[in-house]
């Protein structure tokens, strides 16, 4: 602790103060104006005895300063408190958001194939695959619907149009039988016969018939041709099948 003692400096300064004291003493004895703003305490003691004691009602400035600091600090801390409350509410909201997210992942997972893993990344990847697959299936189904609708529209065509059906047969066994067979067949196809123009000869049977039909004319003509061929084969092997025989 002696290390703190600064004896030399202290002694030097003592000399300095001796001069000051001497100066003050000199002032008192010789009544010359003093260099210092301070007066000797003894004189002040005499003055003080004659004057009333000083009393102040003002609060000490140091105390006022500390109170001012504390008041400002309390105000700032009170504004900080709402921030802490806001922080707590934010934490609760985050917790709620995470819970909702978890529920969403579980719900999505339940829609996916059984073997899907349970982590978020797998759920999202698998969901993307499933959505793509479902989109492809939708496209295919839409295509099928279109095909079926087109077919249905075609079959449902109710409008009838007038057309000519021409048939021709070389060296018929029985021209009359051919004619009758053609007429029967046209009727069975739901067509409506309007006019018939026929030529009969041993070398050739030919007929032009005007009909009203829903089916295309070429189709009707083709079918009638096929029917007449069948009739020829039947007449060739089964002569009793002829309508003419009945007559």
């Amino acid at each position: 602790m002696d290390n703190f003692f600064l004896g030399l400096s202290c002694q030097e300064e003592n000399n300095f103060w001796d001069l000051i004291v001497a100066d003050i003493s000199g002032d008192r004895s010789v009544s010359v104006p003093i260099r210092s703003a301070f007066r000797s305490y003894m004189k002040d003691t005499e003055l003080r005895m004659m004057s009333p004691k000083i009393s102040s009602s003002k609060v000490n400035v140091k105390k006022r300063m500390v109170n001012l600091l504390r008041k400002n600090w309390e105000e700032k801390k009170n504004t900080v408190a709402p921030e802490k409350e806001r922080s707590r509410r934010h934490m609760l909201k985050e917790r709620t958001r995470r819970e909702k997210q978890k529920q969403s992942y579980l719900a999505l997972h339940s829609l996916l194939p059984f073997a899907t893993k349970n982590d978020k990344n797998s759920i999202v990847e698998k969901a993307v695959d499933e959505i793509a697959k479902l989109q492809r299936l939708k496209k295919e189904l839409v295509r099928r619907i279109k095909v079926i609708e087109e077919k249905s529209a075609k079959d449902g065509h109710d409008e009838m149009s007038e057309t000519k059906v021409r048939v021709n047969l070389k060296e018929p066994l029985s021209g009359l039988d051919s004619m009758l067979e053609a007429l029967h067949y046209l009727k069975s196809m739901g067509t409506k016969l309007k006019t018939v123009h026929a030529n009969f000869s041993p070398q050739e049977f030919s007929a032009t018939m005007t009909i009203e039909t829903q089916i295309r004319g070429e189709e009707v003509e083709k079918r009638v041709e096929r029917r007449l061929q069948e009739t020829e084969w039947k007449l060739l092997f089964l002569p009793e099948a002829s309508f003419y025989k009945d007559y």
Partner: peptide
């Protein structure tokens, strides 16, 4: 004669100190 508000040691003397207070 009243509360003391401030004190200061002399900067170049180890034995002197100054004080000021509410007694002016």
């Amino acid at each position: 004669q009243a509360s003391v508000n401030a004190i200061a040691w002399a900067p170049q003397s180890c034995k002197h100190i100054c004080s000021g207070g509410d007694d002016t």
